[in-house]
Design a protein around this nucleic acid. Sequence first.
DNA 1: AAGGCACATTACAACGTTGGAGAGATTTCG
DNA 2: CGAAATCTCTCCAACGTTGTAATGTGCCTT
Lengths: 339, 339
Amino acid sequence: MASTMHDVAKLAGVSIKTVSNVINDYQYLKPETRQKVLDAIERLGYRPNLSARGLRSGRTGVISLIIPTITNAYFAELADEVMRAADAKGLSVIIEQSNGDRDRELSLLTGPRTSMIDGILYSVLGLREEEAHLLANIDTPIVLLGDRIFNGPTDHVAMQNSASTRAATAYLLSLGRKRVVAFGAHSGEVIGSAGLRLDGYREALAEARVAFDPSLVIEVYEWFRSDGARAMRALLDSGVAFDGIVAFNDLIGLGAMRVMQEAGIRIPEDVAVVGFDDIDETRYSLPSLTTINPGKDEIARVAVQFLQERIAQGAHAIAPREYLAAFSLVERESTAVAS
Amino acid sequence: MASTMHDVAKLAGVSIKTVSNVINDYQYLKPETRQKVLDAIERLGYRPNLSARGLRSGRTGVISLIIPTITNAYFAELADEVMRAADAKGLSVIIEQSNGDRDRELSLLTGPRTSMIDGILYSVLGLREEEAHLLANIDTPIVLLGDRIFNGPTDHVAMQNSASTRAATAYLLSLGRKRVVAFGAHSGEVIGSAGLRLDGYREALAEARVAFDPSLVIEVYEWFRSDGARAMRALLDSGVAFDGIVAFNDLIGLGAMRVMQEAGIRIPEDVAVVGFDDIDETRYSLPSLTTINPGKDEIARVAVQFLQERIAQGAHAIAPREYLAAFSLVERESTAVAS
DNA sequence: AAGGCACATTACAACGTTGGAGAGATTTCG
DNA sequence: CGAAATCTCTCCAACGTTGTAATGTGCCTT
């Protein structure tokens, strides 16, 4: 069926190893020989068998990306950036959905499929920080993403959760908002996106000498639209007054906006809203949503780069690195100053 | 490093082939032997090397999914369904983004990476129907998705574009709407999502004996939110009157809604809107968007099933099949009858 | 008691590639 | 001008698995 190196070698009149050398850009090759081989490859439509290469060399050119779910726009956009960055380096990406389930995450990190994978970009959700040592025993190169595990046994690329949420909060305060809601907290969480973002919120308050009011911290456990909508309904029912919202992701912010608008609350006049993630949709919601751009593209680029270095040098050959991407506040209508 | 079958065989005191037999559920095995091997596997943490298996058996357990872009919610949700369906059958999925570029699609179908893939789910966008014969020469099993190529040389799983758009249009007419816009046409396109949906629109008009008005057919070439917004701005500027919209996908429908609302048009009172795709977001937009659920889950399930059969029996061993998934109209606020 | 059959396991080769080592050929340079 | 260095290519083995075929067992039949 498909032609092999043997066929190419025979047609070009060289040894099979020379064909291999041409393909792998070995430096000592007569241009003439190289051309003969190239012609034969072209003529036969030869394509290397990656399984064989993988078996022999131990490299498959495939990395996997473990994320909670691709249907969340943030992760879809992250996956997009990762695939672009990987493609630029000739790597393929297998996406694995974990649903944030700890056991599933672990089995994806160690399961049979890892044998056809050079490395893993692991967006941590289920695994706890105190379990991070489990990663030290895995001999597949791993780069961690997300906000659950810092200073683990391998590279970690993340966004600046505290600093950016602090900037978002400070921005609302600077607009004269007095009662800003932290929308999306997970009670008791210290680390993790929710915990870190809440830190940033509190820092901004402290800096502005605004008293912290626990009734303005709203729990939203899952971060989908419907969860934001539900939490906002409860908040409105509770009668707590507020004039600004820092939503810990765009989706719950959008869900909350929707409920507020149904209740006749004007945005931004009555309540100004800032989201987090800068997903595409925030540009087209009504009103468009001011949000934090956390630097997905940079995260993807750096993570793939780190992973590639780790693949080249060995899973544990490089001391763990921490990298925080640059963020920016994208101002849109949901916080527009009245004109 | 990682243990191999040899290690397992040695520990269990059997031949390497017996280990292989255990793993592949060979029928003639003493329960006792099987258990010994299983114990050894457990103890060594043995995991089969998929590259070696792929090389020897010709199967890797990986399929690829070619889609235009994962950042489009429809494709993200489709990919999600495909990964679930594949996972249930022990298959991994490599996602490849084509951006709808014909040449890139072709190179993904034939490139080197196909050697590590058992089959391809190909969501056609760039390739033209008259080029479908090109697929006949590819020896990787392929199942086609989408609305560009019908009756091609291999299986095709699609949604009922005409019938469902016809139902959506008929529904708006049944609500008493007189001037329904077909929003998202591609002029000159006969086949393809836009062409087929326009057919359905015209059929519904004919059936209801409503005259076709070309000024109500609006071109929207790309189908992202911003394109819908732009097209709606142009439509409003043109002064053409309308009281209903059948948007050819949800995103342009949402973009259009947003522009209408800015212009003070009430939905559904002034204009009723139906979308297409039933992406998650339509549940949470303001107003929530009535839409066509095209049966993504069924499409994914059937497509994976077809592909698996084709992998088992040979790329061209099965006569091409056409499968159309069931659709449904999901009624939400954007067409709610005033109460 | 010998042949037949189902069961249980094994030996060996092969999948297509690359790493390592080395054999010729050619060039460089003291 | 000869030895060393550089270049070009080839041979062989090995990666870890599975397909094929063969070799044993034991039990049932006649």
